[in-house]
């Protein structure tokens, strides 16, 4: 239904510095497309993708929501932020890219204001020491259970999301979905699985979290 953003400008040199669009990226695009009606009804004003990488996902979201939405992309890797900006421009979209650790630089200003937050985290199980880089390694190295970066963003979600806000998180089976669900339940969020796919050795899911108590929405 919706066109995958053009990323033909991404060179092999870029791919040495930034994670290139792959199966996980495309699963997230499919999940957002599936969520299109929900997203439209939400009328999001502010959307943020954390770890925007090559920028394909946030560019796709910007193209779904047109100019009614302000889109931010953050990445801890400067080269990724720059490539994201290129990708959005290449597709005639505006994504405001920032080099930041998670949503840090946008806090506290965007606390309670983010309507859609997307995170395709570094989910690969690696030794702990590999976590915390600021280059391409940051795009995959997830540490123990591939959860070390995921577990840093979960407690921030209740603070940054707007009352009606939605959080989309891509995970690998080994990241232990049940544990993530429990953590988010304890923060007052319910979970739904938007899409699941097996790609090669990886079993990937896109999860969606919304507040259980929507009374302020």
């Amino acid at each position: 239904m919706f066109k995958t953003p053009d990323y033909s400008h991404i060179t092999s040199q870029d791919c040495q510095l930034v994670y290139e669009p792959a199966e996980d990226t495309f699963l997230l695009l499919d999940a957002l497309e599936k969520e299109f009606e929900t997203l439209q009804n939400l009328r999001p004003l502010i959307c943020v993708e954390v770890g925007c990488g090559a920028g394909v996902v946030i560019t796709f979201l910007a193209s779904l929501l047109k100019s009614d939405t302000l889109c931010f992309g953050t990445d801890i890797n400067y080269n990724a932020a720059q490539l994201s900006q290129k990708t959005s421009n290449q597709n005639g979209m505006t994504v405001n890219t920032i080099v930041s650790d998670l949503v840090n630089a946008l806090q506290p200003r965007l606390n309670g204001l983010i309507d859609v937050l997307i995170f395709n985290p570094p989910y690969v199980l690696t030794p702990s020491e590999e976590v915390g880089s600021r280059d391409i390694v940051a795009s995959w190295a997830g540490g123990i259970d591939g959860r070390q970066v995921i577990d840093r963003i979960l407690p921030i979600i209740p603070t940054v999301l707007s009352p009606k806000g939605v959080f989309y998180l891509l995970i690998l089976k080994e990241n232990k979905q049940d544990e993530i669900e429990d953590i988010m339940n304890s923060h007052g969020f319910e979970m739904a699985v938007v899409l699941q796919r097996r790609t090669g050795p990886e079993r990937l899911s896109v999860l969606k979290f919304t507040r259980i108590d929507m009374t302020y929405a």
Binding site: Y78, A81, Q82, Q85, I98, V99, S100, D101, A105
Partner: peptide
């Protein structure tokens, strides 16, 4: 290049 770098 128009991108703020807020990393510490």
């Amino acid at each position: 290049n128009g991108i703020p770098n807020m990393l510490l």
